[in-house]
Write a protein that binds this DNA or RNA. Structure first.
Lengths: 178, 178
DNA sequence: ATAAGTAGTGTCAGTGACTGACTCTACGGG
DNA sequence: CCCGTAGAGTCAGTCACTGACACTACTTAT
C-alpha cells in the first residue's frame, strides 16, 4: 500500500488503495478501521513483544534497568528493519494526521510498558512514571538515530539513559522557589 | 460549545455546534480548522506561557530545574482553572480522536520547552531529551492530580521529579547485558 | 460624502471517509 | 447434497471539510 509514497497520504483516496489491493473500498474498511491504520498494522505485535521483553528481563533489575533491557531488544529489531521502515517514517513525518496516530500508538505502548513493570512488582505510580519517562528517553534515542544513523541505535539509547541520569542528579528533594 | 458534554463528541455534528453558536456551519470552519480544535483553543497561549516561564527561570539552573520551575508555574494555573477544565478532560478522556489531538498538542508543547531550554544555552540534544522526559514526568503528575485531587498538583509534581531522580540513580554508565 | 477596500458571514455544490443493510459466493462439515 | 459461516460486493446515506462566489458592515482614502 505504498501509494502513500507516490502521492502522499492526503492525496490518496481509500478507493485508490482498495483498487491497488484488488479489492472493494468497503472491503478495505473491513480490514482497517480507518485509512491511517494501514501504516500502524504491526503495533499490536510490537506491544506484545515489548511486554514480553520487560517480563523476561533478569530478576532484580530496577524499573529503568528492566526497561532499558527491553528497549535494547526492540532496538535490535528496529536496526534490522530500518530499510523497510524508513519510507514509512518519511510518510508519517510529513503528515500531521499520521503523526497524531503515531503518538496515540506510543501512548498505548507506554501503557503496555507500565503494565509489564507492574507485573514485575513495581508499584502502580512508579511503574507509570518509569514507563512514561523511560519511553520518552527511548523515543529521543530513536529520533537521534534516525537523524544520525552513523552511530548505532544501541549507542544512542545508552547515551540517552546516561544523559537522563546526569540530568536528574540535579533534582534536589523539596525544591523551594517561586 | 459544550454540546459535547450532553451528547458526546461523536454524536455532535459540526452543524449543531454552529447552530448553537448562532452561526453558519461554514463560518464555524473558518474559525476552527476542524471539529476537534474547539477543545484546544488556548494551546498557543499556553505554549507561549510555557516558553516564557522557562526563559524567566533564574540563571544558573540546570535543565530539569528550569523545567520544574516552569511546570510549577503552570501548575498554579491548572489548579486555579480546574473547575473550568474538568468537564473538558472528561470529554477528551472518553473520545479517542480527542486524545490523539491532545497528544499532538503535548508534543508541540514539548518542542516549545526544548526550544526554550536551548535559548538558555542548553545543548540541542540535551534540551530535547530534558524536555521530553521532563514533560513525561509533568504529565504523570497531572494525571496523578486528576485522579487524586486531595493533594495539590505541586505536591504531585515534586514527588514525580523526586521519583524520577530516584529511578534514574539505578542507571549505570555503559550497561552491558544481552 | 463617496469610493474603494477589507473582514466576517451566508449559500451552494462537491469530494471523500466512513457506516449500515442487504446480497452473493465459496467452502467445510454433516 | 444441504447448511452454516466467513469474506466480499453493492448501494445508499451521513457527515467533516473545501472552494468559489455573493453580500454586508465597517474603515480609510480622496
Amino acid at each position: 500500500m505504498e501509494l502513500y509514497q507516490e502521492r502522499g497520504f492526503d492525496q490518496t483516496t481509500a478507493a485508490e488503495i482498495a483498487a491497488r489491493a484488488g479489492v472493494n473500498e468497503r472491503t478495505f474498511f473491513r480490514h482497517f478501521p480507518d485509512k491511517r491504520e494501514v501504516l500502524f498494522d504491526g503495533e499490536a505485535d510490537l506491544r506484545a513483544a515489548l511486554m514480553q521483553s520487560v517480563a523476561e528481563a533478569p530478576d532484580g533489575l530496577e524499573p529503568f534497568e528492566a526497561l532499558l533491557y527491553a528497549f535494547r531488544k526492540s532496538a535490535r529489531n528496529l536496526e534490522n528493519n530500518r530499510p523497510f521502515s524508513e519510507p514509512r517514517w518519511k510518510v508519517v513525518a510529513v503528515t500531521p494526521a499520521l503523526r497524531e496516530r503515531e503518538l496515540a500508538k506510543h501512548a498505548w505502548l507506554t501503557d503496555a510498558a507500565a503494565e509489564a513493570l507492574r507485573q514485575r512488582g513495581v508499584g502502580d505510580g512508579l511503574a507509570a512514571l518509569a514507563a512514561r519517562t523511560g519511553w520518552a528517553a527511548f523515543q529521543h534515542a530513536v529520533q537521534a538515530w534516525i537523524d544520525n544513523p552513523a552511530q548505532s541505535l544501541d549507542t544512542h539509547l545508552l547515551r540517552a539513559f546516561d544523559d537522563l541520569h546526569a540530568l536528574s542528579t540535579t533534582i534536589r528533594s523539596g525544591q523551594t522557589q517561586a
